[in-house]
Design a protein around this nucleic acid. Sequence first.
DNA 1: AACCAAGTGGAATGACCTATCCGCTTGTGT
DNA 2: ACACAAGCGGATAGGTCATTCCACTTGGTT
Lengths: 224, 224
Amino acid sequence: MEPSSESGMCKRARRLRSDAEQNRDRIIEAARNVYRREGLGASMASIARAAGVGIATLFRRFPTRMELIAAVFEEPMRRNRDAAVAARDEDSAWEGFRGYVETVCALQAVNRGFAEVLTMNYGTAKVLERQRQEAFEAFTELIGRAKREGRLREDFSPEDLPILLMANAGVLGAVGDAGPAASKRLVGQMLRAFSESGSEPLPPAPGPKELLRGMVRQRRAGGG
Amino acid sequence: MEPSSESGMCKRARRLRSDAEQNRDRIIEAARNVYRREGLGASMASIARAAGVGIATLFRRFPTRMELIAAVFEEPMRRNRDAAVAARDEDSAWEGFRGYVETVCALQAVNRGFAEVLTMNYGTAKVLERQRQEAFEAFTELIGRAKREGRLREDFSPEDLPILLMANAGVLGAVGDAGPAASKRLVGQMLRAFSESGSEPLPPAPGPKELLRGMVRQRRAGGG
DNA sequence: AACCAAGTGGAATGACCTATCCGCTTGTGT
DNA sequence: ACACAAGCGGATAGGTCATTCCACTTGGTT
C-alpha cells in the first residue's frame, strides 16, 4: 500500500502492454463463443486454442476459471439487469413480466454458457453477483406491481424465477435440436401457471421424435 | 450356433459361476447406491471400489457403461411403468394423473441417477426403452381420459411429461439441499398450468438463501 | 484329487485436463 | 538505439478417467 499508490484505487493493478491487451480481448472473444456452444465445462486448453494463444497466457490473465467466466459474462449479465429494469418500468406490469421471462429464457436457449451462469453459485465473483442482485430486485418490484394489477397470482414468489431458469436450463441441456421448441413450451406452461386468469395459448409441443432424437446420448453420461 | 444350442433362445449366453453371480449382484447393488447419490457420471472405478471387486471384473461383466445402467435401472423403470398403468386405471383420471406426475418427480428428487435415466437417450438399451414406451402409452391413455373428464386442459400434450421431467432434473441438479422443495414447487406450478380449472394451492417456495446456498458451485463447472 | 475353463485383481496404457515452469521474444520508456 | 520488464508459448508435472492385459486363483465336474 506504500510505494505504487498511483493509479487511483485498486482496479486494474497496472496497465497492460498493448499486445497483452489484445490477447486478453481475443481470449474473451474466443471464450464467449466456446462457452456459448459447449457450456462452462469447456476446457481451458480448448479456449486457449480457439483464441490462438498459449495456455500459459490464458492462465496468466485469468488464474481461475471463475475469473474468466466473470469477464466473459459481465456484459451479458449487465444486459440482463437492464432488461429487468426496463421491464419493471413498462406500462403494463404483466406485459413487462411476461416479456422479461420470455426474453431471459430465450437467451438461455441460444447460449448454453449463459444458461449455466444464470443458475450457478458464483463464489467470489462480485461483478456477476451484483448484477444478479440488481436484476432480482428490479424483478421483485415488478412482481409487486403485476400482482396489484391483478394479472399475476398472489402466491407467485420471486424464487419462482430462479426455479424456472434452472428448469429451463435442464430442458435445454437434455434435448439437443428440439431445445428451443421444448423451452418455449415450458415457458408457456409456466406463464400460464403464474397468470391470474391465465389462458393464453401455448407454444406448440415438440413432436416425440424430435424430443427423443435430440436427447443427449451421454456426453460421458452426465445426462442432466 | 451349432454346439451349445442348449439354454432356450439366446438370453443369458451361459450360466455364470456362482462366485461370479454373487459379484454381479454386488456390483449392481453398489452401482445402485453410487448412481443414486452421484448420478450416472460416477466413475467406473468408484463403482468397482464400492462393490469390493477389481475394475476388470466390472468391465468383464458390463463392457459398456450403458449395460450397467440398464441392469441397475431395469427394476426402477419397471416400477415406473407399473405406476403409470395403475394411474391409468384409477377411478379419477385427474387424480391418477396428478398422483403419477408427483410420484415420478419425487422419485427423481431422491435418486439422481434415476432422474437422469428418465431424461436420456438409451441408445441400444432395449429393456429400458421398452419400459419407457409402455409407461408413455399408459400415460397417453390416461391423458385422454383426464381430458374427457374435463379436468385436464385440451392442449396438454404427452410430450409435456418428458419436458417436465427434464425441467425437474434441471432444478434438482442445480440446487443442492433445497432440491426437493424447489422441485415440489415446480411441479405444483406445472400441475396448475395443466389443470383446466386449476387453482389448487402451491407447495411453498424455498427461501432465497436456501436456494442460493444450495446452488452447485462448479463441480468442474458443468453447472447445468 | 485333479483338471481347466471361467473368473479374478491389479498393473499398464493412453486420452484428456489443470496448472506451473522456464528460456525466448517484444513493446516501451529513455 | 538500448535495456529490460512484461509478456509469450511449449514442455512438463500431476491428476482423473476408461479400457485392456495378463499372471494367478477357484468353482465345478469327473
